[in-house]
Design a protein around this nucleic acid. Sequence first.
DNA 1: CTTGACCTTCTCGTTACGTTATCCTTTATA
DNA 2: TATAAAGGATAACGTAACGAGAAGGTCAAG
Lengths: 250, 250
Amino acid sequence: MLINELAKLSGLSKRALRYYDEIGLLTPSDTGDNGYRQYNVTDIDRLQQILFYRELDFKLEEIQRILDAPDFNVNEALRKQHEMLEQKRNYLDGLIITIQNTIQVMEGETTMTNEQKFEAFKNKMIEDNDKQYGEEIRGKYGEEQVLASYGKLKNMTEEQYESVNQLEQMLFERLKEAMVGGDASAEVAMEVAELHKRWLSFYWAKYTPQAHAGLAQMYLHDERFTAYYDDRVGKGATQFLHDAILEYVK
Amino acid sequence: MLINELAKLSGLSKRALRYYDEIGLLTPSDTGDNGYRQYNVTDIDRLQQILFYRELDFKLEEIQRILDAPDFNVNEALRKQHEMLEQKRNYLDGLIITIQNTIQVMEGETTMTNEQKFEAFKNKMIEDNDKQYGEEIRGKYGEEQVLASYGKLKNMTEEQYESVNQLEQMLFERLKEAMVGGDASAEVAMEVAELHKRWLSFYWAKYTPQAHAGLAQMYLHDERFTAYYDDRVGKGATQFLHDAILEYVK
DNA sequence: CTTGACCTTCTCGTTACGTTATCCTTTATA
DNA sequence: TATAAAGGATAACGTAACGAGAAGGTCAAG
């Protein structure tokens, strides 16, 4: 069988098959004197094995190791791969939550009514909680326990929501005070930044100084945010907050 | 500020900073006549923006576009990024399920008692169902509905489990018949492969011919599987099943 | 004998740097 | 003031798994 035929049969590109030959993953058993690659049944068998592992996102090098060691522990390889994939997914989950929250902060802050904000906040808390502990709790205690936990959370959220609002109010007040001195590196300015961090931590699963600083920058460059803080605290408040945060994370 | 200082401050490597300069993402505002890169406050500001987006897994090229177009729609960019990340995660989810099932098939098949198998099967069905429809149902109908759905599933699984077992019995019988002729490409052999596919589909969320063929190969190369089929159907059964499947997916 | 459909072997481009290697400038110490 | 250490610079190769394209050889058909 020539390369074109195998390519069509397997769904791989001819380039890929040549590459597999190049790295020694799939060397055609026969090469005529015209230089053409001739694949036979054994090669097809091997390719099918390759495709199987490739579909599970194994690296080609790893596949090669598996196929070339006949007594390789396939089960362990599958487990390790499984673990790696889960790590990747957890990483992505973290990113997704952070970006969701960023979006929420960005537009929720400026367009939602107070009730809507509370609803969104509540749903988010429930959702997060379910993602983190849902399976665990379900596994350990069964369904009833999960529902009970939800109930508790529903009762708690209103309190928590209040504390977030209080935090923001405190932020406004301290910010107003701090601006009098005009020094964004003064101690009171650091308290402002600290408050902002605590407020932010209600929305962000993973806090990092970089992200904090980045958000501060966005505040400055997005007029909706500038308006938000300047309206509530006074002209120049966003700028000052920005400077304080940058000092804080330095 | 020289490059070393900025590197330590930002956590990036010097090489990375030079690279950012090279691609024009972060060009130091001043370069002394000794050729040293001099970063000032504006540069730090920009770098902080860069780190913010980088943390969300944006590509450097995309970050550059965002930062260099002052009226860029940040919100839309975040949304698109969010969508992309979710796609990646969904892809990973698929992989993880497939690999989990593969592991389960590989070792469950050989070491578990019948009751254990049923328990595992039931739990898996519940789990899968929850993953696929759980959030959706919860969102639409609330908690009670979810529990109801679980109850239905719990009642159904025993039946389904039976049908899986029946399928496997049929597979054994047809396989025995087919082996008489000895032709792995005969029509009856194709029926055997078809049965095996249907049986497999109870365990695999996503069926592909490649994976099917790959599993057949594993059957052949793993003595636990060879023993399993050879014991139940007769000597050479695994080999014949393998051949039939390869014919079938061709 | 030419055309078209194959085949071959290069080589570059992709992403975001890590890792040398070689050389130049500044700073600290003897 | 000579020298050594620290830190700066450019340049080039390597990474994973191919895609794209160039330049040229082979084969069957008309």
